[in-house]
Design a protein around this nucleic acid. Structure first.
Length: 278
DNA sequence: CGACACTCCTGATGGC
DNA sequence: TGCCATCAGGAGTGTC
């Protein structure tokens, strides 16, 4: 499932192919993609526009247009953008034709992905209630992490998945960051001391960086825009590795469910909190 | 306000 | 071999 490193990978690979290009045509085959707006509305606002910049915010992929509108896309579970997809590629929901003939296809088997056009001046207002700090923002330091955890009582794993606190972490990188920090997924965020908050902050940044360096992880068919598989899934330390040896101590990795999400951790390197919250 | 249940969707998986 | 139930999960919505 595309998380920050996967969306970053898509953005980096696709940017040189779309920036400076004019959108020649847009074909939206699945109205769900831009619901509740009708496909015609998006097509009309996109066709003829120059893509000024392609970038990422949280797990959102943004195309800034010459009109100052922004195409805001979310890949959700199974979405991916492909450059010049092979003939017969299945589950293609949207096709964008650029003025040099390049085709950008949005492929999304489960149809959770979304696209919308927002005025650039309204973008921050739209993100504000949804997305917290960017993990690679210099302001995201140990102190900022400690402040974010104050008073939070839901499990630490759920805290990391809450996009309104920190933007971009999903199920994979939450598990990986928690393992790297040595903290248990059920820890109460508000119970972390300063040094634990600092470790968690570093673990989040390190896990996400490792994912980006590997070109993302291929789970649920994720590919980069050139169709290449990600590599990071082979570097997972704990995620989806139930029963396999912990890279730290060799004991079997365990799976539990936290906040309804599959969660993988080492019972020994990530000591369980003494008492459960109530 | 925080926490949590429910919803969307379809390919993959497992049981018989 | 085929059928069916179950599962996965990001974010929006609704409820307490």
């Amino acid at each position: 499932m595309p998380e920050l490193p996967e969306v970053e990978t898509v953005s980096r690979r696709i940017a040189p192919r779309v920036e400076g290009r004019r959108i020649e045509a847009v074909e939206i085959n699945d109205p769900r993609w831009c619901m509740p707006d009708p496909p015609r509305l998006l097509e009309d606002r996109l066709v003829g526009e120059v893509v000024v910049a392609c970038r990422r915010r949280g797990k959102y992929l943004l195309w800034e247009l010459g009109s100052l509108d922004v195409l805001v896309m979310h890949l959700r579970m199974t979405g991916v953008l492909l450059v010049d997809p092979d003939d017969g590629t299945s589950h293609v929901r949207v096709v964008i034709t650029l003025d040099d003939g390049t085709l950008i296809a949005f492929r999304d088997p489960r149809r959770f992905g979304t696209g919308m056009v927002i005025e650039g001046s309204a973008l921050d207002r739209w993100f504000a209630p949804r997305l917290g700090i960017e993990p690679f923002d210099p302001a995201f330091d140990a102190h900022a992490m400690h402040e974010l955890t104050r008073g939070r009582r839901a499990p630490l794993k759920s805290f990391l998945l809450d996009q309104r606190r920190i933007a971009g972490i999903g199920n994979i990188y939450a598990d990986e960051a928690l393992f790297r920090s040595g903290l248990h997924p059920l820890r109460e965020p508000g119970s972390l001391n300063r040094s634990q908050s600092a470790r968690l902050r570093d673990a989040v940044v390190d896990a996400l960086s490792a994912g980006i360096d590997a070109g993302g992880a291929t789970i649920d068919d994720f590919r980069d825009p050139d169709g290449a598989w990600g590599a990071y899934q082979s570097e997972f330390l704990v995620h989806r590795r139930e029963g396999l040896p912990c890279p730290g101590c060799g004991r079997a990795i365990v799976r539990l469910v936290v906040g309804g999400r599959s969660t993988y951790c080492c019972g020994s390197c990530q000591p369980r909190p003494r008492r459960r919250r109530r």
